[in-house]
Amino acid sequence: HDPCYYLDGRPRHCLSEFINAAYGIPANASYSLQGPDYDSNITTLTDLHNPHNLTCWMAHKGPDAGEWVLTLPLGRRFEVTYISLQFCQQGEPSDPISISILKSMDFGRTWRPMQHYSSDCQGKFGLPSQTVAQTRHQETEPLCSDPRPLQKQRGGMVLAFSTLDGRPSSPDFDHSHTLQDWVTATDIRVVFHQVSIEAKVAPPSAVRAPLALSDLQVGGRCKCNGHASRCRRDDTGQAVCICEHHTAGPDCDVCEDFYCDRPWHRATPTHPNPCVACECNGHSNKCRFSMEVFQQSGRRSGGVCQKCRHHTAGRHCQYCQNGYTRDNSKPQNHRKACQPCQCHPLGAVGRWCNQTSGQCLCREGVTGLRCNRCAPGYKQGKSPLRPCIR
């Protein structure tokens, strides 16, 4: 049973599987105290996490000075629910922690912060320490909070950031474009900031607990806009939505060819918003969407059929071309629904006839659907210019 359809075939809102989007993706690390220094393809942070056999990662030049940055290219758009960092140390670190989580929506070209963690939010980031966005305007801005106390788990401590926690619109996520945008990311970056001066001059008696990471997870779903229940790796290793509801594109964010009678919409639990086929009566398999037509129809139908075949014409290929008339003995979708006018070469003016009745335009004294007879009071003459004479 396909989760994107009811048993009776009606479309329904569907979600792709919730996965660890970071799993198996190599992270890149850079350290920037004295110029950039890169480690790429760090795979131990995103492999299967085994608390009995931890691999701990830290920057080459030491964790307690400078700034190091971990970047995780997810390879496609995901709707991220949480980002978690599992540290190796068992207890709270003695040094202050300042961490920022950022995201990119354009495959690493631009970045925006999602969350800051610091025991000194005001001093480090100029932000108050808060865990809840006060207004809907603030819900797509990074908040800053004290990471402590960190959750303790077997094998270390965990810092988990939930993208929707404390966001006023989160109960209405399916209808909030703002929040849908907020959770969308193609790349995740974690920045471990330089510790404060005070920490560096801490008494040597303080126990230094180097910050070391053992696991990085990004929980979320492929962004398929409610139109796919599956997201699979293609031949190049990229995850792609298996689109339903006649949608297409890597995120099911456009309508499939020919299914453009209405504008594309994201599916919601109450409105699955499938893409709808154009009505071309079987005479065309190409159509385009016209917003003007859509508005004129009362927002019901905006598809305009193109390249109507079988001598048909019109937005739905519902008319016959000039020179052809409807054969009412055949259904409208029949390939011979339009037949030639068959106007008499002398009795009719031109070869055009009424598209629905087939009536040709007759010369004076000529009658009949095809203009092939003389009208009452007229008889056939000999001149082809005046076929019927009084």
Partner: peptide
């Protein structure tokens, strides 16, 4: 009254050969 259809053979095509349909 059903009027007979125009009989192409009855027309005098002498001066109108260019108008004469191919199949008449």
């Amino acid at each position: 009254e059903v009027m007979p259809t125009l009989d192409m053979a009855l027309f005098d095509w002498t001066d109108y050969e260019d108008m004469k349909p191919v199949d008449t």
